[in-house]
Amino acid sequence: MTRRSTSDYLPGYPATAMGLLTPPILWACYFVLIYSLHGMVCVGELENSLIRAESLPEFLMAVTLLAIALHASIGVWSWRLLGKLNRRVSAEPTELQQRARFLAAAAAANAGLFLVATVWIGLPVLILEPCL
């Protein structure tokens, strides 16, 4: 078995198609979770569970902070990977190098965008009363 040359370096996740899609999928899960939970808690359907109307803001805030932390982690991870790829790249980047840099850059930028979206959606938790 031959070793891969530097030009064939395949960094793997998050410089993959899935890495690019992770931030939006994470955001979609976050959005569905907070919207559904809010709806169900406010009509009293989860009365017997851990999450009640009184504790809803704290719970939503915790979920929002977790989502922000995950986006930030993916963003930093992708950004550092992009830096690493940029340092490895030759004067004439190979097809694989170009693709890996593109996917890493897109994953980092996507993480930034969806971090902003999460902050904007989560901010009302600090200001508004739930269930009004």
């Binding site: 959005f31 907070i34 809010h38 406010c42 904007w120 959606i121 901010l123 508004l128 009363e129 009004l132």
Partner: peptide, 14 residues
Amino acid sequence: SRFALAFFAGASLA
């Protein structure tokens, strides 16, 4: 509810 509307307002701005 205003709270739920705020989620969608945030996403609309995003």
